[in-house]
Simulated scan of single mutants.
Amino acid sequence: MADVAREAGVSGQTVSRVANGRHNVDPETRERVTAAMRRLGYRPNSAARALRSGRFHSIGVIMFTLSSFGNMRTLDAIAAAATDAGYTINLIPVPNPTRGDVSVAFDRLSEEAVDGVVIIVEAHLLDERDIELPAGLPVVVVDSNAGDRFPVVDTDQAHGARLATEHLLDLGHATVHHVAGPDRSYSAVHRREAWEATLRERGAPVPDALVGDWSSESGHRIGLRLAADPSVTAVFAANDQMALGVLRAMHESGRPVPAEVSVVGFDDMEESGNYWPPLTTVRQFFGEVGRRSVEALLHEVESGVAHGTTLVSTELIVRDSTAAPTAPRAAASVTG
Rank of each mutant, 00 (worst) to 15 (best):
L199F: 08
D115P: 09
V140C: 03
A296G: 14
T314H: 14
R17D: 12
T326F: 15
S333I: 11
A188V: 06
L133Q: 12
H124W: 09
E295C: 05
P277C: 13
V334Q: 03
R39L: 02
A238H: 14
E7N: 09
P256T: 02
L126M: 08
V334H: 14
V104K: 08
L279H: 12
T165M: 07
S67A: 03
G254S: 12
L75S: 11
H159K: 02
S68E: 08
F150W: 07
S16E: 03
T281H: 13
S253W: 00
L298N: 13
P325E: 12
V232Y: 01
D208L: 05
L279Q: 12
V176S: 02
E112N: 07
S16L: 13
I59N: 01
V257G: 00
S67M: 09
L137Q: 09
R55I: 00
V94K: 13
V141W: 03
E302G: 08
D208E: 09
G9T: 00
E31T: 13
H220L: 14
V206C: 07
A238P: 00
L311T: 14
A238Y: 05
H159P: 04
S253P: 07
V102I: 10
H307N: 09
E260T: 00
V334L: 09
L133E: 13
L171M: 13
N145A: 13
A238I: 02
T29I: 05
D267Q: 02
E128K: 02
R292A: 06
V139S: 05
D115F: 10
S293K: 02
G21V: 09
T314G: 03
L40A: 01
A146E: 14
G12W: 05
A174Y: 02
R39M: 15
A123V: 03
G60E: 11
L163C: 06
P277I: 05
L171W: 11
D143R: 00
R55C: 05
R221I: 14
E217K: 11
S68W: 14
S231Y: 00
S216E: 10
L137S: 14
R108P: 07
H190A: 04
P256Y: 08
E122P: 07
P207H: 06
L133T: 07
P151T: 00
A158Y: 09
P256C: 02
E193Q: 12
E271F: 08
E28H: 04
H178A: 01
G203H: 14
L297Q: 10
A323D: 10
D115R: 07
F106M: 15
L210T: 00
N24Y: 08
E217L: 12
A332H: 08
G136N: 07
E128T: 04
M72L: 14
F56T: 07
V257W: 01
D76E: 15
A194S: 04
P278R: 10
G181V: 04
A180W: 06
G21H: 09
R248I: 07
V261Q: 05
T280Q: 01
P27L: 09
V104M: 03
S262P: 10
V25D: 03
G160Y: 04
A243N: 05
G60S: 09
V232Q: 02
Q13E: 08
R162M: 04
R49H: 09
T65Y: 11
A234M: 06
A2P: 11
R202S: 15
Q241K: 10
R32C: 06
R99V: 15
G223K: 05
L199E: 12
